[in-house]
């Protein structure tokens, strides 16, 4: 009897979250794909369904022949979309590298800190993550504006005579992404650096290796799992980022998350925004798989 209950409980524990994710995470992607193949229409919902799943198989096959890849062709025809994809990948890539350069010394400093204050430092890195993303991005508007605090400060110091134009440029987007995603980079880096065996570096030193060389030859290669996890945690969401380019980048910047938002909310073109989402997902599938692999490996190491 106990065994029976146990088996039922196991089924239940697996099945409930499984079903939830199937219905609300996986199935919606299929719908996005389906709608990306349909024609826009002036109705509510604003698209012509390509096929009706309830119409039976003959109707389904008939419609399959008439599937329209028109939205995709259109995406590749219009340089606006291609440029938006390319510049999203570029902006996300550059900001990921900057975040790594900023985050690594912080994580390294934390991992080398006295063990007694490490939990406090960890808490200090996590705390900003708990405050709203929107608020943290918004805070930078007041700082970066032409008459904002940064320019006032620099002019007060006499470094510049005229306010710098930072807000509504790509630089502002870089600052926003680095700032918002920094904890995501620091945490995985810290957890690999903290576990590292210090005696290896000592051994390298004893054998006459200079400190910088010891870092590049021993510490950095050993922290690579953390580097990969951190970079993926920053890069993937940054490619599709909407809030940061919208609030800090101004109307000039081209990022795909913003393009999708505009197509959907301003142009009300659901099929095209679905096609934009499908292509974005295809671009991100390799990094997402890399992320999954690194997660799985670190879990195995944990076991």
């Amino acid at each position: 009897m106990a065994r029976f209950i146990s088996a039922v409980a196991a089924r239940f524990v697996i099945a409930l979250p499984y079903l939830w994710l199937l219905v609300f995470f996986l199935a919606p992607f299929l719908i996005v794909f389906k709608i990306s193949l349909s024609e826009p229409a002036l109705s509510m919902p604003p698209y012509q369904p390509v096929f009706d799943l309830f119409a039976g198989f003959p109707a389904l096959f008939e419609k399959l022949g008439a599937l329209s890849f028109g939205n995709y062709l259109w995406l590749f025809d219009d340089p606006l979309y291609v440029n938006a994809y390319l510049s999203s990948i570029w902006i996300a890539g550059v900001s990921t590298l900057i975040t790594l350069a900023v985050g690594y010394p912080i994580a390294y400093g934390m991992a080398r800190a006295p063990a007694s204050i490490r939990p406090t430092l960890l808490m200090l890195v996590i705390l900003p993550f708990w405050t709203s993303f929107l608020i943290r991005v918004y805070a930078w508007i007041g700082i970066l504006k032409p008459e904002g605090l940064l320019n006032q400060f620099l002019m007060f110091l006499g470094v510049i005579d005229e306010p710098l134009v930072i807000l509504n440029t790509t630089t502002a987007i870089y600052i926003g992404i680095v700032y918002s995603y920094l904890p995501f980079m620091v945490l995985p880096l810290y957890s690999t650096l903290e576990k590292m065996d210090g005696s290896l570096i000592e051994a390298a030193r004893d054998l006459g290796c200079p400190p910088m060389a010891a870092f590049w030859k021993v510490t950095f290669p050993m922290s690579l799992p953390g580097v990969v996890a951190g970079c993926m945690l920053v890069f993937i969401p940054a490619v599709g980022e909407f809030v940061i380019p919208d609030l800090l980048g101004g109307s000039q910047t081209l990022m795909i998350g913003k393009t999708l938002w505009t197509e959907f909310f301003n142009n009300r073109d659901w099929p095209v925004s679905s096609a934009v989402a499908v292509i974005l997902l295809l671009i991100l599938i390799v990094p997402i798989m890399l992320f999954q692999r690194s997660q799985a490996r670190s879990r195995e190491a944990g076991n």
Binding site: P28, I35, V239, G240, E241, A277, I288, Q295
Partner: peptide
Amino acid sequence: MVFAPLVMPEVITGLSLLLL
């Protein structure tokens, strides 16, 4: 399905749920 939503861009998750 458990790990993908952690990094999935929000615009994709939002759009796909709306269409559902």
